[in-house]
């Protein structure tokens, strides 16, 4: 069995009312499996899956990334740093980030 910590940011932190959650996965569990376990506990996040970015440590990871014991998986809404940004900028960014992590 594999226990990983999950951290929530911004909208996800507010939607779940928590900053962290621990989930248990079968050995070799992936980021996608962790997301499923999180949504099981917090169904309100389910609709955000197409927009979500995943990170471990200081790097983005893709949904197929295999988790290891002690990993801390961060769940990000689309990023929107800088200022005067439009929402479509953030959506475009989230697509390109996912493309990168898938590659």
């Amino acid at each position: 069995m594999l226990r990983v910590a999950v951290r929530f940011f911004a909208r996800y932190r507010e939607a779940t009312g928590r900053q962290r959650l621990e989930v248990d996965l079968p050995d070799g569990g992936t980021v996608e499996a962790a997301w499923a376990a999180v949504v099981d506990r917090h169904p309100e996040l389910g609709r955000y899956r197409p927009f979500t970015l995943f990170a471990i440590g200081n790097d983005y990871v893709g949904p197929d990334h295999a988790l290891r014991p002690g990993d801390e998986l961060c769940l990000f809404p689309p990023v929107s740093g800088g200022s005067a940004g439009r929402s479509r900028t953030a959506r475009r960014a989230s697509r390109s980030d996912r493309a990168r992590s898938a590659g």
Binding site: R11, C74, F76, P77, V79, S80, G81, A90, D97
Partner: peptide
């Protein structure tokens, strides 16, 4: 920065 840096507004 606006595409990759994890900051939210």
């Amino acid at each position: 920065l606006k595409q990759r840096v994890p900051v939210w507004k």
